[in-house]
Amino acid sequence: MNRNLTLGFSLVGLVLAATMVGALAVPRDPLAMDIGNRVQPPGAAHFFGTDQYGRDIFSRVLAAGLPSLAVALGAVAIGLGAGGLAGALSGLHRGLADELLMRAVDAMLTFPAILFALMVVAVRGPGNLNTALAIGLVNIPVFARLTRGSVLSLREEQYVEAARALGATNGHILLRHLLPGLATPLVIQASLSVSTAVLAEAALSYLGLGVQPPDPSWGRMIGEAQSFLGRGPWMAVFPGLAIAVTVLGFNLLGDGLRDRLDPHTR
């Protein structure tokens, strides 16, 4: 294993473990307020300190992991599923459908990703499901182009031509002969996309459009901490660290996987 991969795996493992803890058992109720104990610095009672309502930031950072990761993974699943299918079909069939699909993808790519996601959430309303959908839509063109490109090069391979000569259907070719070759770039891209999706979710929540109060979310916590930066910087630092570790972990994992799996970079 290379260094990136090791570090990426460890960080993602750490985030997943913390998220599990956050989902199952947090030291304190992440929603319970204690106005008398607000904006307390980190200490033995509250490892990460308390926020403007006296809520335990440690518990909130842990509890915010699951919705954040669920939204990010859901978004990547949407992008991978819809984009991958569209890209594969368009690469296999070529022709007019391919042209139309790729121009549509080009059109989607002209929008800045976060602006596009904002538009979707503004139309459909805030909430976890809509956030996942919005970020997922942004991911579709990424996966569509990647898949189409790989399919285009793979379909010229001799073993694919051989299968076609033997009378194999498109579906059979896709599943048996192309998918193994597609898996590598898609897995790498998925890992990198999770990290951007985590960031996008945090950005939307920061703007008040993602996770709704009082539920904890890393982006929201930073947004709320903004008025208290002078008085309680820990309110922003710890959720910020959580985002940084998660994003770094998935990025390193993606890079490490590429180094290991992609024959061209070896």
Partner: peptide
């Protein structure tokens, strides 16, 4: 008003009232 709403939602839990906040 948003802040007051968050605090009230927490206080209502003492009566078993589960308040969802919608901004």
């Amino acid at each position: 008003h948003r802040r007051a709403g968050e605090i009230i939602a927490d206080q209502l839990r003492a009566g078993g009232i589960r308040a969802r906040l919608e901004v």
